[in-house]
């Protein structure tokens, strides 16, 4: 089993830093979208965030290439941002 050092470094950064960013973004999207009292939605999303983080890390290392790992995270992060934005916008309109 051989891995180029570049790929390993890239995947590690994707898992640790990218995973942290993406799990926070997804949790924030959940916190705004979950139909619960605000404090409860925030608590629930925070407790779920660790599962998102673990999944992101595993994804970073199991994707075919390091670039694909990054791409998956960026797309997920963007979707989370969109959901967060849409709900925040809807709330400010109401």
């Amino acid at each position: 089993m051989r891995r180029s050092p570049d790929s390993v470094l890239s995947r590690s950064i994707a898992a640790i830093v990218g995973g942290y960013a993406v799990s926070n973004l997804v949790a924030i999207a959940f916190a705004t979208a979950l139909p619960m009292v605000q404090a409860e939605a925030v608590m629930t999303s925070m407790m779920l965030s660790f599962l998102f983080y673990a999944l992101a890390a595993i994804w970073a290392f199991s994707a075919k290439t390091a670039m694909l790992g990054w791409a998956g995270m960026i797309v997920t992060g963007l979707i989370a941002l969109l959901i967060w934005g849409a709900y925040s916008l809807a709330e400010s309109l109401v």
Partner: peptide
């Protein structure tokens, strides 16, 4: 998992900060 949850108000700060 529970250890992570107990420190989440320090480590996952962006989540509550986004709403509060």
């Amino acid at each position: 998992y529970s250890g992570l949850v107990l420190l989440m108000f320090s480590t996952m700060l962006p989540v509550p900060a986004s709403s509060y």
